[in-house]
Design a protein around this nucleic acid. Sequence first.
DNA 1: ACGCTGCGCTTACGCGCTTAAGTAGAATCA
DNA 2: TGATTCTACTTAAGCGCGTAAGCGCAGCGT
Lengths: 324, 324
Amino acid sequence: MGGRQRRVTSAEVARAAGVSAATVSYVLNDKPGQTIPAETRERVRAAAARLGYTPYAPARALARGASDLVLFAHREPIIPPSYAPYLEPLADGLRAHGLNLVWQLGYDPSTAIRHPATELAPAVVLHLTEPDRAEDAYLRRFGAPLVVALSDAPPAERPPVLQVRHLAERGHRAVAYAGTADPRLATFDAARRQAAAQTCAELGMPEPQSRAVPPDRAAAREAVRALLATGATGICAYNDETAFAVLAALADLGVPVPAQVAVVGIDDHPLAALYTPALTTVALDDPPTSAADLVRRIVAASRAEDVPPPATPPTAHLIPRTST
Amino acid sequence: MGGRQRRVTSAEVARAAGVSAATVSYVLNDKPGQTIPAETRERVRAAAARLGYTPYAPARALARGASDLVLFAHREPIIPPSYAPYLEPLADGLRAHGLNLVWQLGYDPSTAIRHPATELAPAVVLHLTEPDRAEDAYLRRFGAPLVVALSDAPPAERPPVLQVRHLAERGHRAVAYAGTADPRLATFDAARRQAAAQTCAELGMPEPQSRAVPPDRAAAREAVRALLATGATGICAYNDETAFAVLAALADLGVPVPAQVAVVGIDDHPLAALYTPALTTVALDDPPTSAADLVRRIVAASRAEDVPPPATPPTAHLIPRTST
DNA sequence: ACGCTGCGCTTACGCGCTTAAGTAGAATCA
DNA sequence: TGATTCTACTTAAGCGCGTAAGCGCAGCGT
């Protein structure tokens, strides 16, 4: 553990292989337009391997004028578990284009702006959502194009449609909306609430009442009690985590699920099937495709090309379980 | 969105301030041992601010021979939620020492080793657990000292003690251990299982039977059924997520909790209190202290000093809820 | 025999920054 | 007054790499 290694430079590899540093660079980067016989290439590669040579990132970036880093900046210290399936395809896809995904988690734009991650010169900065003022100022400091993963009008507007339709099919005539209490998700929350309301209108159902349901058992109980007082028999939750709070509240209130009230979440959280009752939820489809689209946009940005808008948002499907 | 910025260099700042690039460097880095009057300093700083100058990381790293990056490499694409409270103090503490925390998530040592994150030259590489062979080979490629956040004998060995004692206090005379089915957690799983077994022995209870309980409802049912067949009335789970699977299985088997069987988890997962029944769990204490210790070790490593061993592991306390 | 082309390299420069080693001028001291 | 010390800077040399330009040589055509 520990102990800084002495750097092996390309000059040492060159000496070992009996060529110049330029040749080493040409060989190891497979530069097109160079005529270097296989025998020499082999010699260089062998020397590099033998000495354990790894190009020194800063020097390479300095010479090239561009790095191969993609920085995913995220305000929360952890990543929402529902994004996990997107991340591996994203990292793999970027690697296929010679880009490396790196994260900055839990950044606070207000304090971090005075101490930017100066030793990082990403080719592209990635942000999950459209940044606000302070975030934008911070993210710009990296001096790289900014790519927003989720579009302004998030695909999130479709899942509520499926939630409401599903409840209607099950015979519910009055649904309520359980929103998230997290202010950072306010825009998404509003979009989903409105999508649910619109679908109710289309189906000739009364406008859904809504309440924020915090992830706290006692507070959730009050919020859900208020929701039920409106006569709702079906509850659409902002996401599965909110739905868990709703289910906890219903259990505390002694309301049988789904006999008396039905609950639908969004996300297909890993624990959704393990909850009792198992949570009916809406899963977003086709993460690999979305990841591929994101990769495409990031690669374009890294080449200073125009960043295309996100491709058609992923579709969603409902997973019926026992909570409805 | 998009559009690569033209870099503002220190030379431009120098020209604008009417000094040389060296002076700019001295001023902006507050180099001790330089005699530069306040007036000149002001001029330089003003010019830098006006032009929006940010030092170009690779050039700085190249000149200095060291970067200010700490790379936290993690095999999973997401960070266990229970570590969230550690992360902000960690990042803040490092920043106070001029170090920047950056993550590489979901790395696969077997494939990534062929494409290391070459544009990254961290001062220190951080890994949550003691790396295995492949991981170690990969992590070494960064050419930086490696710091392991969790010690070989993880603090994880204490929580099971609390689990078993709690169950014993509640009158349970036969407990079982529900392990994780995740092979990557095998070493932790073994440590916890053994700690539980030892505590049982100390309390004069029979050795706990154990089974891996996967996060799949049907499979969990079979595993838990087997566990119950041994006559156990209390179940210690590897962590809360495993405990959720156990609770789901018990619900499916129609076994009342806690009337007939009690369950204890570890981690105080955000959803532990929202599950029905609310999950009794063991929470690790004192994350800020641990983070401070980790910061100390990382800073030492970045200075190529010897890395001190982790300080005394955090202690834990039990949070009684309704599942016991 | 002479120029020409293509091969297989090498030389040399620059990327933006830090920093050791100056240096010109003013202030201080013997 | 000349020698010395400070002040307030500047000059210049890299850090390790990529890459444009160049160069000697062999082979070819005429």
